[in-house]
Nucleic acid binder design. Structure first.
Lengths: 230, 230
DNA sequence: CAGTGGTCTAGACCACGGT
DNA sequence: CCGTGGTCTAGACCACTGT
């Protein structure tokens, strides 16, 4: 009975959950009992069930035991789209055009997002990504030169701002938001759609400790969808 | 040296990545070397680095060793919003109104999503979720009665369709999509916005093996954003 | 208080895939 | 081939938290 891998244990647990042999809310056997029943070490059972708990299918607490979650799927992992890869994965050629690159005081939304006063000028970089020659995504980025020294001299028409930052700054955390916005005149012009069209938007902020590095707003051409399996 | 937990090892590895002591692309020491250096078992190092690899920060291959990823953040986990919890987490009272409930042949998009022919009638359930009395989210759901026997008799005005399905069907997988759509007349009326307004939309499908159970389209009132930390 | 999950250890064998 | 990560085991102690 050496062939009991943690994947096999996990598959068996999943099967019991899905067939409702272990119905929602029910308490399932101890790690030790399961290990004995399935013919493996408790460590292996722990490894298998831990992932299911991380995925939100099980609720595990010391002393209280392990229960099947009543809300079956609560978390999903998404691949954060690296635009070039996203485009190339669709079998299209990726294009990149630098549109704007200037120091300017940030707008109100960016100030809030980066927790900065409005009178500190930031480097603003606007670029358009193309997929097979068609507009794909408009990138509107604000960079804090204090947290990214040297960026003011960087040639961002060759290396994208994203790549430059990845290579030259140390980041410690950040946030990401998804939403829908109506296209403004600038977005409409670059993304070849009507003003007011519904656009999918991703806003990302990254930080180096307490210092904001960059905020970027990605606005996708109409029809873009983000997908994943559950 | 018992106090070296895998979290501590992970934190140290993260620190080295973020401070560029281990720069992007670099090969990092063996598990065995790290274990010796940090004073813990190899298993502990493995546990710490595995999670970083899962998160996309490290690239691990047998024989080739472990390398720091050149694209730092590639995956993020999102909590799939359970609407009632989402509303209550905002400190608002959740309301639920059943609007429609009828057997009907599905529209073309739903047929494609569920891989069903268009001549099989499905149960359609449309409901409005309220947050603090204001429209929050419109739920447009199609249910396959073959995969969810008994649903035609269920009282979905008390129990939400989602809860009923969770409790009575076995699901094995599914998919989820995010996007932006312009409000149609029905959506505009129920969500108290202008027709054409940009709405955030989530489409989920769930399956029991090869049989489709349900497809649900959630359309959120303007301004809704999905957020997570990186 | 005591049962249950969380984690560490030391050792072992295996699977993959660069050299 | 053989170095490296992937995993299993048996045993141990600890940290919660419900009874």
């Amino acid at each position: 009975m050496t062939a009991m891998t943690w994947q096999a244990v996990q598959a068996e647990a999943l099967r019991r959950i899905r067939t409702r042999e272990w119905p929602p809310g029910a308490r399932i056997p101890d790690e030790e009992d399961l290990a004995r029943e399935l013919g493996c070490a408790r460590t292996t059972v722990n490894r298998a069930l831990r992932d299911l708990a991380d995925a939100g299918l099980l609720d595990r607490r010391r002393r209280a035991g392990t229960h099947v979650a009543t809300t079956p799927v609560r978390k999903a992992t998404f691949e954060i789209p690296i635009i070039r890869q996203d485009v190339e994965a669709r079998g299209l050629v990726h294009g990149y055009t630098l549109l704007t690159r200037a120091m300017a005081p940030p707008d109100a939304a960016t100030c809030r997002a980066l927790a900065l006063p409005g009178d500190v000028p930031l480097l603003r970089v606007v670029a358009l990504h193309l997929a097979g020659g068609a507009p794909f995504c408009l990138e509107d980025r604000w960079i804090n030169p204090v947290a990214a020294p040297g960026v003011e001299q960087a040639d961002l028409s060759v290396t994208s701002a994203n790549e430059w930052l990845v290579r030259h700054t140390a980041f410690s955390g950040g946030g990401i938001e998804f939403g829908a916005v109506a296209a403004d005149a600038v977005q409409a012009a670059h993304l070849a759609c009507a003003p007011g069209a519904a656009l999918f938007e991703i806003v990302r902020t990254t930080w180096a400790g307490a210092d904001p590095i960059t905020a970027v707003r990605l606005t996708y051409a109409p029809g873009y969808r983000m997908k994943t399996a559950l």
